[in-house]
Design a protein around this nucleic acid. Structure first.
Lengths: 216, 216
DNA sequence: CGCCTGATTGAGGCAAATCAAGCTTCGTGG
DNA sequence: CCACGAAGCTTGATTTGCCTCAATCAGGCG
């Protein structure tokens, strides 16, 4: 059985899945490639990102633990609008888009769930658009940390439960890694966060949350 | 009959619609208000935007001619994540969210269409996130003009067929109006666009398109 | 006519990117 | 197991794109 991924969407799909193992750094699909299918993340952590300028990117989100992947590819004759790469060893389930779409056509409940999911994604996405347009970097980094903690939780000693390079944190916040580094340092000075190696713990959640309101 | 709006989504809904007339500047709903229903634009032009800082906003999109409005409010107990205001006299059809959701539950085809629509919105949205994060203002303005021309077409003499204040153009591009103004001037100098009052005509589409690739 | 909103233009400042250079970590292969 | 090179991290100096502020100007409208 497929406890973590497809089951919660629709058991019938489960029969048609294929598991794929990914090593750290493996690319599941790349922007521009024709859409073949849809994936569900069984274990691990996959970054979904959009490229700009060879060594610049924006991380859209992190997909783990049951998350659906490649759903933006629904529609006629599409290429993936984004890329997906494993941040750690991961396992994903693959379902051909053809099969997935035909399932949607006959299963209204599944489709309805998907509409709800999409609406929620759209809300997040549009909020983030505004933030990228108007919010200063410090607020965006604060927001990134809060979102990460919300998604991945904390270890017993309070650190956000994800291993992430500064590079990737920067891409998630939409800034350069030098700037993110400086901002992180400021936050440590202000006793709002705490570091241990590359791990980050939020000490003063309210202070970070306040940064996201700055000037709003 | 409701030729322009609901029919193409689902005729059955048509019976339950209520028409609402809006004057220029009227606000249909505001960020934070509880979601009551969903709208379809019958005629006119509605800007969908997200606020920041009292006199700063980001225009998400322009809804006209059959566009659905308020669909991000699908889900349990939500408040509108965005605001909607009429840019010109407009007519919209109102449908209660309750009714719309129950229609979705029994009408798989409609829901399936909605999923396709949402996936497309998500693709646009995520591309724009990246652009806001990494693309310089000039490229964003170029992109805004191209998108406007694509959506609204041109008048016989080649001008983009929409009346839009510089203010709103700036909010759409994600920049201040002063900056947008300067950029517009540059483009005129470079013979890439042409002005007539507030109307803008794209003279050299390729040059504008190239700006969107700058450094990519 | 005079007010008010939006357009236009200039000067100045600042946040963040870029550039540059040393340092640390990590993976790979000898 | 060590050596080496490549990535990534850290830090400072410099540049710059864009915003902010401020002032003037044009046009619509009561």
């Amino acid at each position: 059985m497929c406890k973590y991924c497809i089951e919660e969407w629709h058991p019938a799909i489960c029969a048609n899945k294929i598991n794929i193992k990914l090593k750290k750094g493996d690319i599941l699909f790349k922007e521009g490639e024709p859409v073949e299918g849809i994936y569900f993340v069984y274990s691990g952590n996959i970054k979904v990102y959009k490229q700009w300028d060879n060594d610049k990117e924006l991380i859209i989100r992190f997909a783990e633990n049951g998350a659906i992947l490649g759903h933006r590819g629904i529609g006629p004759n599409l290429n993936y609008p984004i890329s997906a790469a494993a941040l750690e060893p991961s396992v994903v389930c693959y379902i051909s888009m053809k099969f997935f779409e035909s399932t949607l056509k006959v299963n209204g409940e599944l489709t309805y769930q998907l509409v709800n999911f999409f609406a929620s994604e759209l809300r997040k996405s549009e909020r983030r658009m505004r933030d990228l347009a108007h919010m200063p970097v410090k607020g965006r980094v604060a927001g990134a940390l809060i979102k990460l903690q919300k998604q991945f939780g904390t270890t017993p000693d309070g650190f956000i439960n994800i291993v992430l390079s500064r590079q990737d944190l920067a891409s998630f916040a939409g800034a350069t890694y030098e700037t993110v580094f400086r901002v992180i340092n400021e936050m440590v000075q202000e006793q709002n966060i705490r570091l241990s190696g590359k791990s980050i713990a939020i000490v003063n959640q309210d202070a970070l949350a306040a940064l996201r309101q700055q000037g709003k």
